[in-house]
C-alpha cells in the first residue's frame, strides 16, 4: 500500500445531514491503474461518498487529497477540473441528443471564427464514435444516432468513453451494471478493465459482489456510513464479503430462518 502516492484519498471523512450521520470517519485511497470497489447495501452511504468525491457535497469533517495535496471541492466543476468524472447508473447522458452532440456537451468543438464560429458536428460525431469503438462498442458507427436508441451497456460505454476522452484520471462508476443483463454487464466490466489499463483510477460502486470480485484490485465495504472492512484482492472469500455486506450475523440468522421456511414448503410438497 505504501508504494505510490494515491491519486485521490479521503482522510477521516464524515458527512452529517441535519443530525443524521451519513458518513462516519471514512478513509480511502485510490491509485492510478487500479480498481477500487466500494461495496455496501442500500443506504450504506455509497451515494453520499460518491457525492463527496465528485464535489456535490463538501464533507462535514475530514479532508480530501489529490496527489497528496489537500483539495476542497466547492462544486462538481472543481472535481472535474482535477480529472474526477462520475458516470451514473443510466449513463447520465442526454437520451434525446445524438451520440456526437451529447459526447461534447459543455465542451463543444468549434470550427470557423468570429460570427462564423460554429459547432463542428463532423469532428464531434467522428470522435465520439471512434472513442466508443475503442472501448469495443463496434455496433455504433453513426454519431447522429440518438443516445436513447443505444442499449444500457452502450450508454455506459458512451459515458465512460466521454470521461476518458476528456482526460479523467479518476472514474467513479455508480452501479454501472445494476440495470443491465448478464451479457451487457460483462461488456461494461470489460470496459472498466480497459479504462484501468489506460492508467485510470476506477472507483466501482456496486452491491454485486461477483462483479466487484471480477475487476477489483482493492475493496472497501461500507455499513451504515462506516468503513466496515478494507482489503486487497484475494484476501477475502466471496462468502465473507456477502456476509459482511448483509451485516454478518444477521445473514446467518436469515439463512436459518429461510431454511425452516423451505423445510415447510418441502413438507407441503
Amino acid at each position: 500500500m505504501s508504494k505510490a502516492t494515491p491519486i485521490l484519498s479521503l482522510k477521516n471523512v464524515s458527512k452529517v445531514f441535519a443530525g443524521y450521520r451519513a458518513l462516519n470517519d471514512v478513509s480511502l485511497e485510490v491509485y492510478p491503474g487500479k480498481v477500487l470497489c466500494l461495496l455496501g447495501d442500500n443506504g450504506a452511504g455509497k451515494s453520499t461518498l460518491i457525492k463527496v468525491l465528485s464535489g456535490f457535497h463538501e464533507p462535514t469533517s475530514g479532508t480530501l487529497e489529490v496527489n497528496g495535496v489537500t483539495a476542497v471541492f466547492k462544486s462538481p466543476k472543481d472535481a472535474s477540473n482535477v480529472g474526477i468524472a462520475t458516470v451514473h447508473q443510466f449513463g447520465g447522458t442526454f437520451p434525446l441528443m445524438s451520440i456526437g452532440r451529447s459526447f461534447f456537451v459543455g465542451a463543444e468543438p468549434t470550427k470557423g471564427r468570429g460570427i462564423f464560429k460554429r459547432f463542428d458536428k463532423k469532428y464531434a460525431n467522428e470522435t465520439a464514435v471512434r472513442e466508443m469503438q475503442q472501448l469495443g462498442i463496434t455496433r455504433v458507427t453513426d454519431g447522429d444516432r440518438l443516445i436513447g436508441g443505444l442499449s444500457g451497456g452502450e450508454r455506459q460505454a458512451s459515458a465512460i468513453a466521454r470521461a476518458v476522452h476528456f482526460g479523467a484520471n479518476v472514474l467513479i462508476l455508480d452501479e454501472p451494471t445494476a440495470a443491465l443483463g448478464v451479457k451487457e454487464a460483462a461488456h461494461v466490466l470489460r470496459i472498466i478493465m480497459q479504462a484501468r489499463n489506460k492508467g485510470v483510477a476506477v472507483i466501482l460502486v456496486t452491491h454485486n459482489v461477483s462483479h466487484a470480485l471480477t475487476v477489483g484490485d482493492h475493496f472497501a465495504v461500507l455499513i451504515r456510513g462506516e468503513k466496515a472492512d478494507d482489503f486487497a484482492k484475494g484476501e477475502r472469500t466471496r462468502e465473507q464479503i456477502t456476509d459482511l455486506m448483509a451485516g454478518g450475523e444477521a445473514m446467518a440468522e436469515l439463512e436459518r430462518e429461510l431454511s425452516t421456511l423451505t423445510g415447510t414448503i418441502n413438507q407441503i410438497n
Partner: peptide, 8 residues
C-alpha cells in the same frame, strides 16, 4: 447544444 442538454 446547451439548449438541448438543459432540456434533456
Amino acid at each position: 447544444n446547451w439548449i438541448f442538454a438543459i432540456g434533456g
